[in-house]
Amino acid sequence: MPRKLRSIPGAAAALALGALAVTLSLIPAPAAAEQSVEKAIEQYRQDLQGGNPAELWEARGEDIWNTPRGPKHVSFKSCDLGLGPGVVKGAYAELPRYFPDAGRVLDLESRLVWCMVNQQGFTHAEATKITFGKGAHKRSDLEALAAYVVAQSDGVKMNVSLADPHVRDMYAVGEKMFFYRAGTHDFACATCHGSDGKRIRLQDLPNLTKKADAQKAYTTWPAYRVSQGEVRTFQWRLHDCLRQQRFPDLIYGSDASIALTTYLAARANGAAYAGPGMKR
């Protein structure tokens, strides 16, 4: 909905202008403008506290979680996210992890798909038919479930264990991918996320090689994207990053996606999870 979106940067700019007049004599203009835009956006986020539409996804996700579904008529209450069947509280803060029953390291989304396939009896194609929703007629159960699950880890400290050798391997692969330059534009994740002050258009990009930035970035995904009117998961985040690098489509729940997630999640260890977040 491009029309209503314009009002957000517009409002931010108007606010920024006011702040600019005050600070002009002290700080060079561009720096002041940048800072006040950031402040204005922060203010906008604060005004919307308690108004994160991700809560609507959480409610829908909770319904889906508790409802018996699929050919086997089984609910997610038998789905083990790592802390026991049906245990949701705090589970996201320890993902990805190695699941012996799956024989793989899985992140949240791929674990949900695993439960849908192996416990509820869906085919993999059915389970991943709509990974990224679009509007009322194409809603993604996975996005709703993710919103519900991650919300139960709000305030829990990120604690991805690298004790298991499988997870350590994934971390190492993820780290390599992060710095690996490839594709038509010779891009790596680190090209945009490896130093301070980088941005795409007006969006500041976190420097993920710095602990604080890495923590803040990871702990605020999944998030409600105002510009899309949808909750987006970490799989979506990576998918869209790789798209912008002109890489081939990142396959949902692939080892590549889980390796990158493992690397980034473990780098956020120690910070309190604070999602689902809200992004522009």
Partner: peptide
Amino acid sequence: VKVLMSHEMDTGLA
């Protein structure tokens, strides 16, 4: 009172 509503709110212009 704070309320969140679930609605597409299509403008008819998109």
